[in-house]
Design a protein around this nucleic acid. Structure first.
Lengths: 231, 231
DNA sequence: AGATAAGGTGTAATCTTTACACTAAGTAAT
DNA sequence: ATTACTTAGTGTAAAGATTACACCTTATCT
């Protein structure tokens, strides 16, 4: 009654595009590889899935091993399966992205020695990455750009308390275009999910801006799931 | 210098959610399996990827073998990789969807004997499917629903010449809500990519409607890529 | 006290969306 | 040929959203 599955030597892996925002720049997390091929080169954090873990679980584990980051909500966005994408054999890779507040996660450090180091790198100063990682990054970047226009993902990149100018700068970094200050504020505040705090920015050498917090509870009440922000 | 890849017995497969539109109903293509497990059950067309073909190529080949359909533009939408999703071992599957005009492809017929038959089935009368195919279908359906609001994918489901009422009915079937006739027409025509033909519907027992054609050349000129249709 | 740098604010014009109901044209039946 | 039936096809006003645009305020620094 059983029919055997055909088998061949194949491997699947996970690659991660982890976005962060720091010093008004959008960044992603890279590792310096400590293994052939491409030893010494910078690449996306990625590794092989084990046979007894789901790919979602693998994504979490691999990110932890290569960067020390834990418990991120990662979202799968595409699977890359060209025959020759890996020089050592048939490897298809499932790509994930996540958005993270860099502050507090500034120090990232591999737990295994597959990577020599991990670090944040500005997205608009990326060199060519090994394998098809440049393509993977580009695809992921497109996905979050699109998603930004219908879901409040920006807040995952900001500190818990942020100014409206920070929020706008982040939108501008992702969408890669300038937005009008008054219109941006009007629209953001009109949604009703930003809570104005009784607190001002500290440590700036000019007028301090009011801090806001994203109120997810209100957001969920107001929208089932959708926004529409196009600048 | 080389580092060996860890290997284990794993397989990757492709599953297809092929949408069609017929008799004012949205349908998908199912096969009747002719092999264990689930012999005799209806399932999504899907099979194992070969070691020397890309997953995109595999999707095309597998769809052809199971349904006789060829040369469709298929779009990958998600990869399912839970450990226990397949009763015979570790199989991760990459899911694809495509949209197709049923007319002319009404007769679908497997080329291999892995499937006993293939047929169109209305999406709102689907029973539970084997493996995690119900979940795969739902995910794919969500994706095209979202995509409908920013890309002109509806025209891939309609005959080359269609009436505005047919177009509206299709939108209603995918979005699962009623749209206002006047507003729908106004908006669709305002885009400027529908070409009104000098031809009327034939064989109807009431006033015949004007036929239209989707003008992709104009569409590409007008939009780089985006629409926004939300009913 | 003055210079500097960002924070914060309103309005009018245009465009888009929504809600809504009747006549026109063709076919079928008598 | 009249009538009944069924779908095609059409316009407008009100409300809401988007855009474009410039100056005063507040804090810090010297």
């Amino acid at each position: 009654m059983e029919t055997l599955l055909p088998k061949f030597d194949s491997v699947f892996s996970v690659d991660c595009v982890i976005f962060g925002f720091q010093a008004n720049e959008l960044k992603i997390l890279l590792i310096e590889r400590n293994q052939e091929p491409y030893k010494g080169r910078n690449a996306l954090p990625g590794y092989i899935v084990k046979d007894d873990e789901s790919i979602d679980d693998a994504a979490e584990r691999i990110l932890y091993e290569l960067t020390g980051l834990r418990g991120l909500h990662m979202e799968q966005f595409h699977t890359f399966g060209d025959v020759d994408r890996h020089p050592q054999g048939r490897v298809i890779t499932v790509a994930y992205y996540a958005l993270i507040r860099i502050d507090g996660h500034n120090e990232v450090k591999p737990v295994t020695n597959f990577a020599r180091s991990a670090f944040w790198h500005p997205v608009n100063k990326l060199d060519k990455l090994p394998y098809d990682h440049s393509k993977i990054f580009e695809t992921g970047f497109q996905k979050i750009r699109r998603r930004l226009s219908y879901q409040p993902i920006a807040f995952e990149l900001l500190p818990e308390k942020f100014t409206l100018t920070q929020l706008q700068t982040l939108y501008e970094a992702i969408l890669n275009k300038k937005l009008d200050k008054r219109n941006f504020r009007k629209k953001m505040l009109s949604y009703g999910f930003l809570k104005e705090l009784d607190e001002k920015q500290k440590g700036v050498s000019y007028r301090a801006a009011t801090l806001y917090r994203f109120d997810r509870r209100k957001y969920n009440k107001i929208f089932q799931n959708e926004l529409n922000i196009n600048g």
